[in-house]
């Protein structure tokens, strides 16, 4: 097809294996700042606000303890993620969540975003995969795992 080029694969922009935060807002603010520091998004505060606004329309927490907070940005060239593991768990609008994938989505990449979400949900619905990911304590091993199972590109 003319004019439609394959968008670049989602990139893992930040990783936090031992996150201790009191609530969702702090978690989102912190991970947004990480993505911003890594150079993937420009205005960290505006992005965090957009993510929290989006959560008001519908929680992104899955019953398996994974949350996929996200917001859309107009000037982004590819999907960027920040991954965090909260060993103590977090109350995410009534659901206990310990894995967070914060996603910055370019406005025109609906297809790539849907592909990512389905891939992520399908992979982590398998209990074996979920426990495997949670057990990873080393940053390098975790990056490699995410690269292999979710087809993420490492920054």
């Amino acid at each position: 097809m003319e004019g439609t080029q394959q968008p670049a694969a989602p990139v893992l922009g930040a990783l936090e294996l031992d996150l201790h935060v009191p609530d969702v807002a702090v978690a989102v603010t912190y991970l947004s700042a990480q993505l911003s520091r890594a150079g993937w998004i420009e205005d960290s505060t505006a992005f965090a606000d957009a993510v929290m606004l989006r959560e008001q329309h519908g929680s992104t927490a899955l019953p398996i303890g994974v949350a996929l907070p996200h917001a859309r940005l107009g000037n982004l060239s590819r999907i960027a993620l920040a991954y965090a593991h909260c060993p103590e768990g977090l109350d995410w609008g009534g659901t206990r969540v310990d894995l967070i994938f914060l996603v910055a989505v370019p406005k025109i990449q609906a297809t790539a975003y849907l592909a990512l979400v389905q891939q992520l949900t399908k992979t982590l619905r398998s209990d074996k995969h979920l426990q495997e990911l949670k057990s990873l304590g080393d940053g390098g091993a975790c990056r490699a795992w995410l690269q292999r199972h979710l087809n993420l590109v490492l920054a």
Binding site: T60, L62, T111, V117, Q118
Partner: peptide
């Protein structure tokens, strides 16, 4: 055209809302 491939297994994209994929 954009969402066709994901319709069959729509449950695994339940966290996605219309506002997340709408072309404005």
């Amino acid at each position: 055209e954009e969402v066709g491939p994901f319709l069959r297994d729509s449950a695994s994209a339940e966290t996605v809302l219309a506002m997340d994929i709408v072309d404005e």
